[in-house]
Amino acid sequence: MRHYHNPLYVSYGVADETEGLKQALSLARNNGAPLGVLVVCPEFPEEFPDYRKKYEEALVAQAEASIRSTKKAIKQKEGIVDITIELVSDNTPSIKIIQYVLRHGHDLLIKEAELLKGSDSGFKAIDMELLRQCPCAMWLCRPIAHSRQHIQVAVAIDPESMEQAAKALSKRMLELSRSLADSCSGELHIVSCWDYEFESFLRDSIWIKATDAQIAEAVQGTQHKHRTALEGLIKASGISGNCRVHHLRGKAEECIPSFVTDKKIDILVMGTVARTGIPGFIIGNTAENIVQNLSCSLMALKPQGFVSPVKAY
């Protein structure tokens, strides 16, 4: 299944971006889509106007060399993916990138994740700004050690939201993750978290005289309701194939990063915004806490109708 028709890869043109380009070229190939490459750089100093053109040409040349070497590394023949390269310079790169996406109608933004100092999880400020405000899907790449046939794909689903936009987003995430898994190991991990947050209060309160049996029934009822909603979403999505459902008890911001680490997940698909039509409405607290503890590549989707606070011009 082809999901993206106009992907964009963001490059800084100065570092080794082989890992990000591998994932971008592979994804463009799998979707039968051309790949745009946007080289983003700081504004060149006004004191040296004669060198600006050479500076920008050098960055584009570096990007071209990286693309050639990456194609060779993944044994992708010339002509398989049509590639165009463009350069923009600005001292607020996240805004410039989003404006470029809006003006050119890109439906997927691919970028290497920028590592926080001293950590192998979380994302730097520019990545978080893009997650919050970019209108299209985002793929933040981290190194994947496994061969393509062994890459592990997971999708994080919250079946409890009653908003139609959130339900539609969950179905899209399931369809996309199924397609990604089919192009990799073939196994899809579906992870969802539930909890009964009043259990400890009910057990410990001197004011409430609920029996252990009543509390256990309430906990089991919550678990069953959540699992039923999850299975309903999976069925409604129409996906099939090799799926493993992980119904975890606990807070999503704690359980999902631990699950990713324990199961050696390479790519996690998740939604980052659950409401639509509100300019400037940023990533939800739960989603933000999850992504700041992730150590894998992230495919982040927003619901149809999401409005970026950034204007195209």
Rank of each mutant, 00 (worst) to 15 (best):
N31A: 14
N31R: 11
L38S: 11
V39T: 12
P42W: 08
A61I: 06
A65G: 08
K72A: 15
A73Y: 02
E78M: 14
V81D: 06
N91M: 01
T92W: 01
I97Q: 09
Q99H: 06
E112T: 14
A113F: 12
S121I: 13
L131T: 06
A137D: 13
M138Y: 04
L140D: 10
I144C: 03
V155T: 07
I157D: 06
D158N: 14
M162V: 13
E163R: 11
L169K: 03
R178A: 13
S183Y: 01
C193M: 03
Y196F: 14
F198S: 12
F198G: 03
F201E: 14
I206G: 15
I208C: 05
A210T: 11
A216I: 01
V219Y: 00
T228L: 00
A229Y: 00
E231L: 04
L248R: 12
G250Y: 07
A252H: 06
I265C: 11
D266I: 11
L268D: 03
M270C: 03
M270R: 06
T272D: 07
A274V: 14
I283N: 03
N285S: 11
N285H: 14
A287P: 00
N289H: 15
S297E: 01
Q304T: 07
G305E: 04
K311S: 06
A312C: 07
